[in-house]
Write a protein that binds this DNA or RNA. Structure first.
Lengths: 213, 213
DNA sequence: AACATTCTGTGAATTTAAACACAAAAGGGG
DNA sequence: CCCCTTTTGTGTTTAAATTCACAGAATGTT
């Protein structure tokens, strides 16, 4: 068996996908080289070749990788060709933005249900979906065999929502609430913490501009 | 001079901040230990102690770290006490969500200007800010000496917006557009690519459920 | 058809990060 | 006041990721 792809390599694959896609849109070239990708992304070229060996694609020496094939192999490997239906809990600003965002479609993500506990919101139309009562969450997940749950609630509700999702047999959670979910089951959790990422900027600015003492 | 903090360590600090903050809100304890943090976050306890040595805080053997002090040292180190004013370009769904999001305040981030090129949007009120014409971007950045630019435009505009920001002497860019910005200047770029992060989920689901062949 | 060039694929070396392991410090209990 | 337990701080080890370096393949050129 082939060695499992390391996490950092997996994290780079979507970047390759992005570059090769835009390359195909802009240029009329059949092949793309690791050095081109390297220039676009500031990633060592041997690193790129090594990453591409994990997914099963071969390049041609002196020529490069078949660009269309590379794009499709990446898309397949990353699961973009699969239909990934998700439900979202917490129809605030962020939840609404995600629900209405069109950019996910090409990655196979389709948000098919919205839930909230606020009576003011239940029944409202967001995008082309009606906000459903959180009470119905488990039932809907089970009925439609939904695999992905997106949590955009305030932090204090996230844990209990996650537990409900898991009880309904969800497989992966995309968590935008700023808490670390405490989960025993073998569920895939992807945490997305905007404030956390802002810290990099905040710290950088503090480092570079020590205005006071 | 003390050794520079490694990127992975820096990335963990906001998590410590989050845990110690909630710890202080919930419990009435003066001290917090690395093993407690370790349990909450699933991070090796010696790793945590090593991380905390980069910021200048000392713990007490057999007792732990002073929780309030830890929280404040983290906040200071991460720049949360600084006022970080930012302008945002691209008032779509995501831009609106970020502009209206209250959660950034406690990290010192304040969005003080919104810009768009769409005449339909210019003049609209989003949160308590009026959307300004993109033409005025450079002028406003310079006038108020803004350090942070947030890009939530479609991918194809991101590069040119970034260049305008840089011309106006911005210091850091938080880029939500799914492109790699090509920048020579010594500017801090923080890329935020939701679709990219969704790939982890997508790939996981594909791995665990090989439905077809 | 020999040669130069350019790109892939991959062992080997290097660098970086994480985990282990334990001495030393602090405090509590008998 | 001595021993036991807990927790920090850190030298050392292990593991992982990245980079180096180069053989070998494909192609163009003279």
């Amino acid at each position: 068996m082939v060695k499992k792809i390391p996490k950092p390599s997996l994290a780079r694959l979507p970047k390759y996908y992005q570059v090769v896609t835009s390359y195909l849109n802009r240029k009329n070239e059949k092949y793309i080289s690791s050095s081109y990708l390297s220039d676009c992304l500031n990633i060592d070229d041997s690193q790129i070749r090594r990453d591409l060996m994990y997914i099963e694609i071969g390049g041609i020496p002196r020529v490069g990788y078949d660009a269309k094939e590379l794009r499709d192999v990446l898309a397949d490997y990353l699961g973009y060709f699969n239909l990934n239906e998700a439900i979202l809990v917490g129809v605030g600003n962020l939840g609404t933005a995600l629900a209405e965002y069109k950019g996910f479609e090409r990655y196979g993500l389709s948000i098919v249900g919205l839930f909230d506990s606020d009576p003011e919101k239940i029944g409202n139309l967001v995008g082309n979906l009606k906000v459903d009562n959180i009470e119905n969450l488990e039932q809907v997940i089970k009925k439609f065999n939904i695999k992905i749950g997106i949590i955009t609630t305030p932090a204090r509700y996230a844990q209990q929502i996650a537990e409900k999702m898991i009880k309904a047999n969800i497989k992966a959670i995309w968590n935008f609430a700023p808490v670390t979910l405490d989960i025993d089951e073998d569920i895939f959790i992807q945490d997305e913490n905007l404030a956390e990422n802002f810290s990099f900027i905040s710290h950088y600015l503090k480092e570079t501009e020590p205005e006071k003492e």
